[in-house]
């Protein structure tokens, strides 16, 4: 074997160890009986029990799920419309502006997005009286905006790959634009939209920085509560929470992967 023959696989293996070792240790120590997160004190599920009795965490998880569900759904509608307009409407006034606005949120630092949206909400409240205070609504709006950009990217690539002769055939047979969209385009791109929705849902569940800026009292999301806890140090019930999240994500990713594979097939 040449030198290069084994150097590369070993480097790749180390790369995967780097990616997975911290996650594996999180999961392992979630079943640790000891309060010391990194010293093994025997197998136990007590931290899962403590987690389920923690009202603050459960409340925040409920807030996060509501926010993620609402913003993923609205973001899928807005992102799909943006993608449809950009791929099917040819040229129109403001096309370049919309392209920019639908991609820029992807690369905008979260602290800037969060601060600028908060300042917008405060100014709107002063001049228009809406939104009254900050809470669930403002977090949903903020998450919808950056999630819609992600959905738009996914939907655009699917719409570009899609065989446009299907839509042409429907039009030739006398279908109006609304019917063509709902009866032809939408069913074809639906699997991509499902994975877009799932991505938006995860991104919303994951966000700490933007939510911290635009949220108000009584609407702390799960990452906000977790952050305030781990700032003080490691704690085993957070390991239990991480394990649950990892389990859910693995299941969701497998489902999304299967859907994407089906949508990729011609």
């Amino acid at each position: 074997m040449t030198a290069r023959g084994w150097v590369l696989p070993v480097a790749v293996l180390l790369g995967f160890v780097f990616l997975y070792a911290p996650i594996v240790s999180l999961v392992v120590f979630s079943f640790n009986d000891s309060r010391l997160v990194t010293v093994w004190g025997g197998f136990s599920t007590r931290w899962y029990g403590e987690l389920l009795r923690d009202r603050q965490i459960l409340g925040a998880a409920w807030v996060s799920l509501q926010v993620a569900f609402a913003s993923a759904t609205i973001a899928t509608v807005i992102g799909t419309l943006a993608a449809f307009v950009l791929t099917r409407f040819g040229s129109f006034t403001g096309r370049l502006l919309l392209t920019g606005m639908a991609t820029a949120p992807l690369v905008m630092p979260e602290v800037i997005t969060g601060l600028s949206l908060l300042l917008l909400f405060v100014s709107m409240e002063l001049t228009l009286g809406w939104p009254a205070g900050r809470g669930l609504t403002t977090v949903i709006i903020a998450h919808t905006t950056f999630c819609a950009a992600f959905v738009a990217v996914i939907a655009q690539s699917r719409l570009r790959d899609m065989d446009e002769s299907l839509e042409e055939a429907a039009r030739d047979l006398g279908a109006g634009p609304v019917r063509v969209f709902f009866d032809v385009t939408l069913p074809v791109i639906a699997p991509a939209l499902v994975s877009g929705w799932l991505l938006a849902f995860t991104l919303s569940l994951d966000d700490l920085v933007i939510a911290s800026f635009v949220s108000g009292p009584g609407a702390s999301t799960l990452p906000m509560v977790v952050f305030s806890k781990i700032r003080l140090g490691v704690s085993p019930d957070i390991n239990a929470l991480a394990t649950i999240i990892i389990a859910v994500v693995v299941i969701a990713v497998v489902i999304a992967g299967l859907l994407l594979r089906r949508s990729a097939r011609p």
Binding site: L26, T38, V226
Partner: peptide
């Protein structure tokens, strides 16, 4: 490829937290 993407889908905050447990004075 799926193994590369998978950690990205789990919570960002908790992945950073995992390193706190790794790098601590009494860490792994």
């Amino acid at each position: 490829l799926l193994l590369v993407i998978l950690p990205f889908w789990t919570s960002f905050l908790l992945r950073v937290y995992a390193w706190m447990g790794f790098l601590r004075r009494e860490g792994v």
